[in-house]
Write a protein that binds this DNA or RNA. Sequence first.
DNA 1: GTCTATAATTTGATAGAC
DNA 2: GTCTATCAAATTATAGAC
Lengths: 196, 196
Amino acid sequence: MAQRGSYAKGVAKRTEILDTALDVVARNGFRGTSVKELADSVGLSQAGLLHYFDSKDELFTAILRRRDEVDLALADPQADIVEQLITVIRHNADVPGLVQLFASMSTAATSDPSHAAHAYFVERYASLRTQAADAITIRQRRGEVPAGVDPTRLATVLLAVSDGMQIQWMLDPATDMAEHVELVWRLALAAVATPA
Amino acid sequence: MAQRGSYAKGVAKRTEILDTALDVVARNGFRGTSVKELADSVGLSQAGLLHYFDSKDELFTAILRRRDEVDLALADPQADIVEQLITVIRHNADVPGLVQLFASMSTAATSDPSHAAHAYFVERYASLRTQAADAITIRQRRGEVPAGVDPTRLATVLLAVSDGMQIQWMLDPATDMAEHVELVWRLALAAVATPA
DNA sequence: GTCTATAATTTGATAGAC
DNA sequence: GTCTATCAAATTATAGAC
């Protein structure tokens, strides 16, 4: 078996912890959730849980990374990255706690380069922005997106609406986040003049 | 003098405190700033400062409200609300700490109805959304915005981009927030088909 | 109105036994 | 690897003097 040795065991356990944490946070939310709360739900003591992660922030950053992995696995690999993004946003309405976690961590980490999650967000936005810009460029060549639109800017804007809609959705869960992201996307596809 | 009596004095002092706090937060940022830090900068003890506000969260909510007042006073009353919004976003690049404060408070307060700032955000989004939707409706009648676009949805989306761009700007201050909000606005003005 | 002093917790992190 | 126990702070909020 490939999972032999203490290293693999540690990794497997870590993943198991993260998947449980993902469920717990998704439901119970993230109200400055303490390490102990999470420890209880995964059946470990606080110290036991922190054995796997260097700090609280590292733990929650790992949760965010794991969530991206899970989301990616669920997405249709055939689909345009923009379509995938919209699908993920649509799913977000089912996991309020994760939306809360993402929003909280992003505000805390983006403005503080020394925050444990800073690198995660840098990588995430760079990666998504590039992927989306590439997809937009392809559509542009097909004439589906006006030539005057800068792909990177449009990509940036699509990510921004996604993030911003989370705030308004938390305020009123009846709000349809995905629909609003789609509106921007359709406006771009429908634009005929050539905004910079 | 109109400012006589303990009530008026209290109000004046409160405003004075808030204006100082606004400066301090704008520069120093909001890294979970403690009440004591703010108290020091306004020349009061921690308890002295809390004499004017019921709690820490009430204090920071008051700072946000005061900031909106100041921003509103600076805006051109002749301008379209959407243009005003873009102007405010442009100014935001000069007050990083306030962007941080707004982002932090919005994530904390929107998801928690019992948070001291919850009502503030409810009112703020409702008000801005309505005003923007009205302005969009007017443009629609003039034929500047496609008839098929729902004014409230477009308004919602413009607010979302504004919020979302703050995250990406905190990550990279070279990002031009206003320019990206304008992109969405121009896409809407340039759209020719009729997205819902 | 403002201060000093302190209560009241909470909670992240670590040391060390098993 | 996991736990118990404890440390070490950091703050908010309040009581009560002046």
